[in-house]
Amino acid sequence: MSQLSTQGSLVAHVSLVLAAAIAPSIGSAQGLPAAKDLIARYVAETGADAWKSHKSSRMKATMDMPAAGMSASMEVLHVYPNRVFTKVDVPGMGMMTSGFDGENAWSVNPMTGPRVLSGPELAAVRAESDPSASYSRQSADITSSETVEKTTLGGQECYKVKHTWKSGKITFDCFSVTDGLMVATQSRQSTPMGELEMLTTLSAYKDFGGFKRPTTLTQEVMGQQQIITISAWEWDNVDAKEMELPTEIKAMLTKK
């Protein structure tokens, strides 16, 4: 296994987390818990910062669209803080890969060919790749968080928190009234074809070495339910070679 996380980037990341901790958490609607308290509870309940004691992770999952008869295998490699490589193998469609190397976001699939992402897609991948944002909502990119209502999502009562990002985008999370876990998240997903509003419900939290993650993520897109089922979360077994950019992307990033 290779050493894949640099001390320098970790220090930089901790600085960002500290910066996020003092980012404003707007006063919540009357009678609702403050967003910062909901987030802090969630982080404590899930051990969301556990990733900081690891160099890398490997998430294995299946992505099912039962009504369409599709089932794909999926693997997400994450070298902390923010290098990501994703593989999704869809029978009949082929292997779709994508990633972020800390600077460049890219994707390769048989439908579109290789792409180096820019604009909103790059911004989305950059944010997704930051564990302080995706695991714990403690990123400096979140400029404010505000509890907006108590509602029911995914069959659970939850407090809905609105996040405003530096880019101006708005996303929502809903934290369970009962146990503080995130039960749903709502955002606009950037794709090569434009943006789609997505509501994802989260359930079946499991502990992966002190890191509690939802293992069932369900979305509905165009009438189709799509379910990601996480089967494994492994720490510190990502090899440097696995993170190498695909040949096409290397070429695209090289000036002719």
Binding site: M65, M96, D173, T191, I230
Partner: peptide, 19 residues
Amino acid sequence: MGLGTEPRLRHVALVALLL
């Protein structure tokens, strides 16, 4: 910013569209 609780939720939307 298409952010989910896991870093690759964007794929779900993308696969749905590509499908």
